[in-house]
Design a protein around this nucleic acid. Structure first.
Lengths: 134, 134
DNA sequence: AAGAGCAAGTCTCAAAAAGAGACCATGTGC
DNA sequence: GCACATGGTCTCTTTTTGAGACTTGCTCTT
């Protein structure tokens, strides 16, 4: 992980790991802008065990609004993490499933889940110290 | 990664990996709420090589407002990822450095950076397909 | 000596994003 | 006939974020 200042399109920009952290040229930002959203990674985790329908997701994540559920699913579909299938039943049901890309990302997210559980205590402790002295 | 419905404090909640995905009781959400923010993980990556001062960070990430820079640093400090040191120089300078916890998270973020670079092409491709048919 | 610039922020106001909840068409069970 | 389910959209309000001026004290330039 080395950082230096590099040149992209004649502009000086910060480099992290040899990747331009520039606003337009940074793949990390481009990816993060989607999956870093409030609901996006939770959605991918929720689909880990298999496809779910719209209303199943809504029940699984009770504190998401329908509006944000729709939008999150669209965003994830657009970037290729999930696939949307409509079954012509009565009433029509819609199923959301992880793609290969989505499962690949899920592998990363699992590590993140483990890390969160391991370090949750330390974070809560740090928070209390900070709040006490402020 | 198994998901089922479990019981926490008498309430039925979704479980992912044996972790309650409930709003109040989920360590993953608690951690993610901070580092999932727009600037937070970028900030930790920026401090990877060593401590930086406020204005150095501002120059490194030109598209962050001072207001959000201050707030992001405070949030990260509160959760124990970074440490803030004031040097009584003239004018006083303030240095931000990763803590052990911050470096631990950095390890995860590096994997994320690698994944982003590897899969950026696939994501852009998926995006174009989606935009074309919509 | 006057003016500019930097340090690390705070403050205010405007714009964007998110949340709450009504509404839609269609069909089933009671 | 009534309530409920399906997968959403629409509008309204609240919360977040962004843009940019302002601060205090010191140094550097002219």
């Amino acid at each position: 992980m080395s950082m230096l200042t590099g040149e992209v399109n004649g502009k000086r920009v910060a480099m992290v790991c040899g990747i331009p952290m520039d606003v337009e040229n940074c793949p990390v930002r481009d990816v993060m802008d989607n999956i870093g959203g409030k609901w996006n990674s939770l959605m991918i985790l929720s689909l880990a065990d298999g496809p779910l329908r719209f209303s199943q997701l809504r029940r699984l994540i009770p504190d998401i609004s329908q509006r944000m559920l729709t939008q999150t699913l669209r965003d994830l579909q657009r970037d290729g993490y999930i696939h949307r299938t409509v079954y012509p039943t009565q009433p029509p049901s819609v199923e959301y499933a992880l793609t290969d890309l989505g499962r690949s990302l899920l592998g990363l997210l699992k590590h993140f889940v483990d890390w969160s559980v391991e370090n949750h205590g330390a974070i809560r402790a740090a928070r209390e110290v900070y709040d006490a002295e402020a």
